[in-house]
C-alpha cells in the first residue's frame, strides 16, 4: 500500500467517524434553524438592504464558525482517543508511518470541515435574501481562504492535542478560535509578542464581504495567504515532531 492509499483509508475512517458523531447533526440542526428563519424573512418580504445583509452575514458567519468548530473538535480527539482506546496500535502495526498518520489525520479533518463548510455556505447563500452589489473578487478570496483556514484549525488542533491534556487542549483551541484575534489586537500594541498567537478571526472575510467592501488588494491577500500557510506548516511540523517521538 503506498502512502496515498494509506491516507485515503485514514480519510475514509475519519469521515465515517464524522457521520457517526452527533456533533455533525446538531450543527445541521442549528443551520437548519437559521435556514428556516432566513426563508421566513424572505417570505415576509423583509428583504431591505439592512435585513438582507444582516441575514447573509449571520449565515456566512455561522457556516464558517460551525465548520471551524467541527474541524477543531474532530482534530482534537483524533490522537488522544486513539491512544486512550489503544486503537492506534493496530493502525501503526499495518505498518503505517507515523508521519503519514499525522498527515492523513490532518487531511481528513480538514476535508471533513471543508465539506461541512460547503454545505453550510450553500444553505446560507440560497436561503438568505439577495444582497446587491457584493464583490465577486472578494467572494472568490473568501472561498479560497476558507479551506486553508480549516486546514490551519485542523493542524493547530492536532498539535495542541499532542501537547496538552484533553480538557486543556479543548479549552485552549476553542478560546483561540473565538478570541485569538481580539486578544492579539488588544495585546500586540503594547507587547508585540502577542503577534505570535494564532489569529483565526483575522482571515475571516465574511463580514467584509457582506459589508459590501471590495476584494482584498493583492499585496495584502498575499500576506494573508502566506500567514495561514506558515501557520499550517508550523502546526503540522510541531504535531509531526511530537508524535514521531512520542512513546506509545
Amino acid at each position: 500500500m503506498n502512502r496515498f492509499t494509506q491516507m485515503a483509508w485514514l480519510i475514509r475512517g475519519v469521515m465515517i467517524e464524522v457521520l457517526r458523531r452527533q456533533m455533525l447533526w446538531i450543527l445541521f440542526l442549528v443551520m437548519g434553524g437559521y435556514a428556516l428563519v432566513s426563508l421566513a424573512v424572505r417570505q415576509q418580504g423583509m428583504d431591505g438592504v439592512g435585513a438582507a445583509s444582516f441575514m447573509l452575514n449571520l449565515g456566512l458567519y455561522m457556516a464558517g464558525m460551525l465548520a471551524q468548530l467541527l474541524t477543531a473538535l474532530l482534530a482534537l480527539r483524533q490522537f488522544p482517543s486513539e491512544m486512550e482506546n489503544r486503537t492506534i496500535y493496530p493502525l501503526l502495526a499495518k505498518p503505517l508511518d507515523r508521519e503519514v498518520l499525522v498527515l492523513g489525520k490532518w487531511l481528513a479533518c480538514s476535508l471533513g470541515g471543508w465539506l461541512v463548510y460547503v454545505m453550510f455556505f450553500l444553505l446560507a447563500w440560497l436561503c438568505a435574501p439577495k444582497v446587491e452589489n457584493l464583490s465577486g473578487g472578494l467572494l472568490m478570496q473568501l472561498l479560497m481562504i476558507q479551506p486553508l483556514l480549516l486546514a490551519w484549525v485542523s493542524a493547530f488542533s492536532l498539535a495542541v492535542s499532542l501537547c496538552f491534556p484533553r480538557g486543556v487542549s479543548h479549552a485552549m483551541v476553542i478560546f483561540m478560535l473565538f478570541c485569538g484575534d481580539a486578544i492579539c489586537q488588544w495585546g500586540a500594541e503594547k507587547w508585540p509578542v502577542f503577534n505570535a498567537l494564532p489569529r483565526f478571526g483575522s482571515v475571516d472575510l465574511a463580514t467584509r464581504f457582506t459589508d459590501g467592501i471590495g476584494a482584498v488588494p493583492w499585496g495584502e491577500s498575499l500576506w494573508m495567504f502566506a500567514y495561514v500557510c506558515l501557520w499550517i506548516v508550523l502546526s503540522l511540523d510541531v504535531a509531526r515532531r511530537l508524535f514521531v517521538r512520542r512513546a506509545l
Binding site: G50, D211, E220
Partner: peptide
C-alpha cells in the same frame, strides 16, 4: 509567523453597511 501577523488586516476598511 509573528512578523507577518501585523500585515494581516483584511478587515481594515472604512465604513461598512
Amino acid at each position: 509567523v509573528a512578523l507577518i501577523s501585523p500585515q494581516v488586516k483584511p478587515r481594515r476598511y472604512e465604513g461598512g453597511l
